[in-house]
Design a binder for these strands. Structure first.
Lengths: 231, 231
DNA sequence: CGCGGCTTTGATGTTCATCAAGTAAAGTGG
DNA sequence: CCACTTTACTTGATGAACATCAAAGCCGCG
C-alpha cells in the first residue's frame, strides 16, 4: 500500500472534473490539502466491512470489488467498481459503519477525502451537493440493476452477462484479461466455482469464446447477448 | 384513484418534517401549491416502468411494491416500500425513464412533486439537498441490503427472513395480515408460488407460525431468526 | 523440484422448478 | 342470494438445474 501525498496536485487530477466540478478554488484547495492518496495491489483490502465510516473514497485508477462476508462463511461479491465510481457513496451518509468490504482486484489508486469535509461542503454548496446526488443516484442504480439482472438469469445467462459486462463496460474490447479468479466470478454471480468453469468450457467448446488462462476473447458477442437475455 | 388537492395543506402533513425539514416558508408554499396528492387501491399502478420521470413521489400512507417485468414474462419484486420511503428517489436523478414499476399493495396515499422543482430546490438550498442525500443513501442502502440478504439464503431462510421483515419492519407486531399474494411473496424472494406455500405449511406444521388465509402469526420468532440466519 | 493455490473434469445428491390436479375463496351477473 | 366463473391456494409426483464431493492436472514460486 503505497503512500503518495507529496503536494497538492488536485488541479491536475484526471477525476477533477467529476469530483470538483462544482467547487470553488478555495474549497478545492482545502480539500486537496487534506486528501490522502493511496495505492493498492490486488487482494489488498481498502475498506473493511464493519469499520467506522470516516472517509469518502474515490477510485482514480484500477478496479475494486464490493463484497460482503456472510457470518464469516462464504463471501459474496456485490459489484465490480470502476474508476469514476464513488465507491463509498452508498453507505456513507446513512450508516456509521461500512456494510461492505472493498478490495482491490487490480492495482488501484484511491483518493480519500475526509467525510466531514465532504459533508460540510455539501451543506454549504448546493451545486456540489447536487453533483453528489446525481453521482449517488447513478451508482446505486447501477448496482441495483446489475444485481436484479443477474438474479433473474440461469447460470448460462449469468456468465454471458458478466462476460459482456467485462468486455463492454469495463474494458471496452472483446479481448481482455479477466481480473478475477474463477472463484470470485462464482461469488459475483452466486454460483459455485465448478459450475462457472463448466459453463466457460462449454462456451469455449461451442466457439463462443476463447480462453487461455485468464485471457478471454469473445468470438460471438451476439450469441452471448442472446444467451444473456434468454437465460 | 382518488383526487385530493383541495388547498395547500402541507403545514399539517405528517411527513412534513421529513420532506420539508430544510425548506423555508416561501419554498414550502411554492412546492405545496404545485403538489398533487393521489390515493391508490391495491393493485393500482402508481408508476409504470418505462414511463418518463417527471415527478418526485413520496409515500404518505400505505404500502407499495417496486417491481420489474423481465421481457414481458415474469415479474419480480425488488422491494416493499413503506411510508417515509422516497419511492422514486433512486432513478430520479440519474435516468430519464423509470426502470421499475411501482404498484400499491394496500390503499396508499402518494404525494407527487414536480421533479424540476425539487431539482431546482436542491440546487438552491444546500441544506435541503443534503437532506435528500441522506434519504437517498438510506433508501438505496435498504434495498441493496435486503436484496443481498435474501439472495444468500435458501428457500426456508428466505421465507423466514421475509416473515420477520413483515413482522418487525413493516407492522411492528408478530400477528399481521399479509398484504401480498403467495405469488407475490414468491416474486419477492425469487422462488415459485408452490414452494412458498409448501414452506409456509411446513412452518405451520412445525408450530413456528400460525396461518389462516392471509392472517399470519409468528409463534416462535427465535426459530425464524435462526432459520433465516442459517439458511 | 516440489509445494500450495488455482483450475478442471467426473460422479453423485439435493434443492427447487415444473407439471398436473384438485380445493377454497372471491368476484360477477341474473 | 345463488349459480357461475375466475382467481388464489394447496398437495403430490416428476424432472432439471445446480451444489457438493472427490480427484487429478496445471502453474507459478520459493
Amino acid at each position: 500500500m503505497g503512500f503518495n501525498n507529496q503536494y497538492c496536485n488536485c488541479n491536475n487530477c484526471i477525476v477533477r472534473s467529476l469530483v470538483f466540478e462544482f467547487m470553488n478554488d478555495e474549497m478545492q484547495q482545502k480539500v486537496c490539502n487534506s486528501k490522502k492518496e493511496l495505492s493498492y495491489n490486488r487482494g489488498e483490502i481498502i475498506i473493511k466491512e464493519g469499520s467506522p465510516i470516516e472517509d469518502f473514497a474515490y477510485i482514480k485508477e484500477g478496479l475494486v470489488k464490493l463484497h460482503q462476508s456472510k457470518n464469516g462463511s462464504r463471501d459474496s461479491i456485490i459489484y465490480i467498481a470502476k474508476p469514476f465510481d464513488f465507491i463509498t457513496v452508498l453507505t456513507v451518509f446513512s450508516e456509521t459503519k461500512y456494510k461492505y468490504s472493498i478490495t482491490a482486484i487490480e492495482k488501484t489508486d484511491v483518493c480519500f477525502f475526509k467525510l466531514e469535509q465532504i459533508r460540510s461542503m455539501a451543506l454549504n454548496n448546493a451545486a456540489f451537493g447536487f453533483g453528489l446526488i446525481r453521482k449517488m443516484s447513478s451508482v446505486s442504480d447501477k448496482i441495483i440493476n446489475s444485481y436484479t439482472e443477474i438474479n433473474q438469469k440461469n447460470i448460462r445467462g449469468r456468465i454471458a452477462f458478466i462476460l459482456l459486462m467485462f468486455a463492454n463496460d469495463i474494458y471496452g474490447k472483446p479481448k481482455f484479461k479477466l481480473p478475477i479468479l474463477r472463484k470470485e466470478l462464482a461469488q459475483l454471480i452466486g454460483m459455485t466455482t465448478e459450475n462457472v468453469i463448466r459453463i466457460l468450457s462449454e462456451f469455449s467448446k461451442d466457439g463462443i469464446i476463447k480462453i487461455r488462462g485468464k485471457e478471454i476473447e469473445i468470438i460471438k458477442p451476439e450469441w452471448l447477448k442472446t444467451i444473456s437475455e434468454k437465460g
